[in-house]
Write a protein that binds this DNA or RNA. Sequence first.
DNA 1: GTAATTA
DNA 2: TAATTACAACGCAAT
DNA 3: ATTGCG
Length: 836
Amino acid sequence: MRLSLYKKKRNFKETPEPADSPSGRSGSHKFIVQKHDATNLHYDFRLEMEGVLKSWAVPKGPSMNPADKRLAIMVEDHPLDYENFFGIIPKGNYGAGLVEIWDRGTYKPIENPKKINDEKLMLAQLKKGDLKIDLNGHYLNGTFALVRMNDGKGNNWLLIKKKDEYSEDDFNIEDLNPVKIYKGKEDKETKQKKKSPNSQNEKQSIDKYWKTLQKPMLAKLTDKVFDDKEWIYEIKFDGYRSITKIENGKAEMVSRNGHSFNEMYKPLVKELENIKAEVILDGEVVIENKKGIPDFQLLQNYSKNKKGTLKYFIFDILFLNGHDLTGFPLYNRKELLEELFKKYKSGNIFLSVYAEEKGTSLFDKVSKMGYEGIIAKDKNGIYRPGKRSDSWLKIKTGLQQEAIICGYTLPQGSRKHFGSLILGLYENENLKYIGNCGTGFSESSLKELFKVLNPLVTAKSPFSLKPKMTGTKGKPVWVKPELICDVKFSEWTNDGSMRHPVFNGLRKDKSPENLTRESGSKSNLKNNPEPEMSKEDILTLNGKKVKVTNTDKLYWKKEKITKGDLIKYYTDVSKYILPYLKNRPESLNRHPNGIDAPGFYQKDMDVKQIPKWAKTVKIYSTSNKKYIDYLICNDAATLIYMANLGCIEINPWNSVYTRPDNPDYMILDLDPGDISFKEVIKTALVTKEVCDEIGVKCYCKTSGATGLHVYLPLKAKYDYDQVRTFANILASVVHDRLPDTTSIERSVSKRKKKIYVDFLQNSKGQTIAAPYSVRPRPLATVSTPLMWSELKDNLTPQDFTILNIKKRLDKAGDLWKGVLGTGVPILKALKKLEKL
DNA sequence: GTAATTA
DNA sequence: TAATTACAACGCAAT
DNA sequence: ATTGCG
């Protein structure tokens, strides 16, 4: 049985309950989730699921907003397999692109949703066809969520969250706590593995995991200390993070960039090799100074002078004797780690101690002792290699910042080499002064640093604004901004400088480009006297004022083409494109976040919201049973307004609103599948040949994407049905002449490796990119009118882009004027066509 | 991009 | 007040 | 009535 969610909604109550369901309600409907429309998931969403519907409930998880109504559906034998994620939540705001991944252990979102802005991720995880999502505004308009989990009894649950769509009364839903159920499963498995890690479960090769596990899990920076029973707290060591693999008595230590530490920290490697187990461990290499406090500067010089005590503090275990442990909650991993180390006496290898629950007290202690800070870790969190996760938080005692050395001041008195370092950071493109740092150097580091700075000395200040150095006496000497150092300081001052900065060593592993303030470190930038860059401009076009915003926003990332460039283009070509838009209702295909982010269509304009001078017309939509305020683009101002809305592509109707049922041209859209563009050219030429034979004029343009468009001028003499029928026949004739390379089949699967001769765009309300319209495609290609003589083998659609069309137009003019001119007699032509 | 809602 | 969230389509043809 | 398609 196959049914959609809206059907299910009706059917739920009819579903009989099985006795064994956790929620006590169930049925056995098979259902399918299908993604219907990749471009407009927010509103065109039909939902179905494949599997057997057994029961439903509203679960209550710790982090769930109780106001959210969640509907849980249990499915049997669902083919979907999940590994690293626990649930997915696509949200309308970001289209299907927003996927929220939920932690299997904590039942909390484990990624910042904004960061996962990629529909592909979801499709990849779910495998298209296994579980697809399909929205339909009529039934599922609003927040929608799908969360899948296993309840430990072999039952898979799919939660469907739909705000305001369901109420508990509707279904008489009983509570279900999937968290407990899930954790129960995790605990059981963990215990099993702990008790007999060598038996039962299949062993996995350590090398298979080594590559991914080499990347350490990272902590997010936060500035609040807290106490929480569910968290543990560790000292943050100021050293080098290192992951170690031990296998057959051989240890291998790597840095967070995957470089080997084996040579540098030989004594540690030797000691680690005493461990007779197959493990991957995570820890930090530190050097303690005489006071027993880790010293980053000593560590940096260790390879040279071997000063200080080298230690390795281990705080995590990722793999043990054939078992990947990253999926286990932290407390389980800690237990395993402790058990493992019971057997070994430590010399310079230590387990990192941790405090439970009492984060603030540890933080206070650590601050007094001079450590850098603490790391708070969620007991239930899993280990996520290479990810900066919310389940690990770093809380620093003081602030720390990497800064670019932009110069130094001359030494005063008995000071040798230099007085202080002049430091800067990038803010947008500009290097900004953030203070001088004159302490934290030893005599040797002063000398050493001076030696590396000298070759970089330059006469010109690297800052865009001349820094005001108060309280420093020495004369500044500028250096090229190429070196980076670590600086500790107490706080940011109001004008964006560091208070009490202390030098903390050079960073050789970073590059100065784009080095900015560490996110999370607080600064009082609001009081910064520097004027902010204006974010908007007002353009005046024929007396109409258009606000353009975010002109620096990159619409084409790779090509570095901005929204400003798009606006410039449409301003430049407006006189060529406007005739093709006049009085034609517009379908806005908006890409407000550039071509790589999901876009959406918009037809209905909010008349109150758009500029006063913008023209709209009301046209009745039979499918929606309401009037739609279509935008009419009759002037440059409206065109720019559209571009500012992220409307990269301009899609006008084929008919003007005054004669909405009579198209002004017929369109054949030659859309190649996996086939060479030469064949498309051939097809267009055959189309032209047929048109010539029946005595009708036709025009050609690139679609701007992959194909070509052929237009026949009609001058609104026929209705859409007549035109479509004619297009159908013309397409068939072309297909007959090129049966191997073309297809008029609508189904995608039936026309692989062929050119789809699409005649169905000749319908009311259907649109196609206008001549001179940019397309949201790589290279910012433009749908470009061509002369038939240009259709040669070496022509490609990529020849015409936003960058060169203006020049072409100014030179050759508009090649398509005839398209809106005298129409061709298609009824006569039809008769000729039938005789062919 | 804008309006509404939430923290 | 700042940050987050929701919202923005249609018609034809095949099944 | 539902679904695929552009």
